[in-house]
Design a protein around this nucleic acid. Structure first.
Length: 427
RNA sequence: GGAUGGGUGGCCGAGCGGUCGAAGGCGCACGCUUGGAAAGCGUGUGUAGGUGGAAGCCUACCGGGGGUUCGAAUCCCUUCCCAUCCGCCA
């Protein structure tokens, strides 16, 4: 959500933002409606004021005066009610239009239409040179009986997986490892529900508009409960301080969200159907920051979140690259986004393991999360940022592929060994 | 799922049809005091929208929605949330 006044005063900036993000929104209609509503509201409030004024006189009026006053007040009230019905209709339309306005990308974000236009800004780590034909993570898992896909698909449907034995342990280990790292960096681990209300989903601002059906392709709905399964704990964490006015001293709030995540993947039929890369249910440690609403704070935390996931990549000894998402690929609610992608030998390409985003006050406006600035005592919107900490099972794919040995074993990176009974190899 | 009690400003909490944006306290800001701090004293202090050069004025908001009334924080209905007890349960 953007500030309505900002939209009305800067329609060209907003139109440009929608254009570079390939998002349709009707800025002109917003401006028009806004002005119309203001005019109507002025009239409506005049009647209300009149009604209130007369009502106030009634207690002290004489019995003779009273009936006339009551009638007069009633009339003003009825006029006001009539106008308020028109107002309400217009406001609903405006609210919906406003919710379709995307966040404005930062100035230095590369322009582009799709992920093909993203820019690689950094490549780190040597790709492992194998003196044998490296296996895909899928083959490694099957050959070692570390996972089941076929049977579990019959039970749970396609894009399902079960990790077994030491692989299940490895999954837990990487989460523990990342949670410890985040704790060391001042984050508080929060294990949050994946069940959430649709309002929370909308408040996270991944989807345009207020129309909840928009998200039906992406988000699982829990039947007649009216609730959804979150695609990320960002949704829950973002709403965790909704409606609050925090103290400046409370900030920054650093959360390491831990939860199951659910995605319908309706738009990715046929893609990554085998293995652990793209599944309907996964587990993620999410980095989430609520900070003071300034550019500097946001920029600082963006850099910090990115550095943490880079450190995770380094500690897991994964070759990776950092890309800067272009305007067309960055998503509705973001100002800036960097993806971290790990090298997957069997595919001979980098695959996204994390996505670091500066949201600015876009989510804060939707949740109405604010803080009181010390000194001025002014109430301001917070800024939010998020980045993946680690997401499994996807992260396990590059992890076991990069560290596989000729005999089909997998070497455990040193930093991970304390979480894996100090073993050097998986088997 | 059943029963009961609650949801009021940044926080706590009074009010339970008109004089209520709402006592009191805490917190916070500014000032005095002090060598400095604390304490103390004084003053100020909700959010949002509209209007105006400004002071100001108007409107809305006492969990959400609806209703009764000339008038609702206060009465009624409904819904959500919280607490406790009972039931069920990993």
């Amino acid at each position: 959500m953007l500030d309505t006044k900002f939209i009305v005063e800067n329609p060209d900036i907003v139109k440009k933002a929608a254009e570079v993000k390939n998002i349709k929104c009707d800025v002109d209609q917003i401006v028009e409606l806004y002005n119309a509503i203001n005019m109507l509201k002025a009239e409506y409030e005049t009647y209300l004021a009149k009604k209130n004024e007369i009502s106030k006189k009634i207690p002290s009026a004489t019995n003779e005066e009273r009936p006339a006053l009551i009638a007069e007040s009633k009339e003003a009230g009825e006029k006001a009610k009539e106008l308020s019905e028109h107002l309400e209709q217009k406001e609903i339309v405006l609210k919906d239009l406003l919710a379709r306005v995307p966040q404005i990308p930062a100035d230095n974000v590369p322009f582009g239409k799709s992920d093909a236009d993203n820019v690689v800004i950094k490549t780190v780590g040597e790709k492992h040179i194998f003196d044998f034909e490296p296996k895909s993570h899928y083959d490694l898992l099957i050959e070692n009986d570390w996972a089941d896909f076929e049977k579990v698909a019959q039970v749970a449907g396609p894009r399902s997986h079960a990790l077994k034995g030491v692989m299940a342990r490895l999954e837990i280990a990487v989460h523990m490892f990342v949670m410890d790292k985040l704790t060391d960096n001042g984050f508080t681990i929060v294990s949050v529900p994946a069940i959430c209300k649709p309002e929370s989903v909308m408040a996270a601002g991944h989807f345009p508009g207020n129309d909840l059906t928009i998200m039906k392709d992406d988000v699982y709905q829990l039947g007649d409960t009216g609730r959804s399964l979150a695609g990320t704990s960002e949704i829950t964490l973002n709403a965790l301080h909704a409606g609050e006015i925090l103290k400046e001293d409370d900030l920054p709030i650093l959360y390491a969200g831990y939860s199951s995540c659910f995605r319908k993947e309706a738009g990715s039929a046929g893609k990554d159907t085998r293995g652990l890369i793209r599944v309907h249910q996964f587990t993620k440690v999410e980095q989430f920051v609520i900070c003071k609403g300034t550019e500097e704070e946001s920029a600082k935390w963006h850099a910090k979140l990115l550095s943490i996931i880079e450190e995770v990549m380094t500690d897991l000894e994964l070759p990776y690259q950092v890309i800067e998402a272009c305007t067309g690929d960055m998503g509705f609610n973001k100002i800036r986004m960097h993806d971290v992608e790990a090298w997957v030998p069997s595919e001979e390409k980098y695959r996204e393991l994390g996505s670091c985003s500066t949201i600015h006050d876009f989510q804060a406006r939707r949740t109405n999360t604010r803080y009181r600035e010390s000194g001025t005592n002014k109430v301001k919107f917070v800024h939010t940022l998020n980045n993946t900490g680690i997401a499994t099972p996807r992260a396990l794919a590059p992890l076991i592929e990069n560290h596989q040995t000729k005999d089909g074993n997998v070497r455990i990176p040193e930093k991970l060994r304390p979480y894996m009974q100090n073993k050097e190899f998986l088997k």
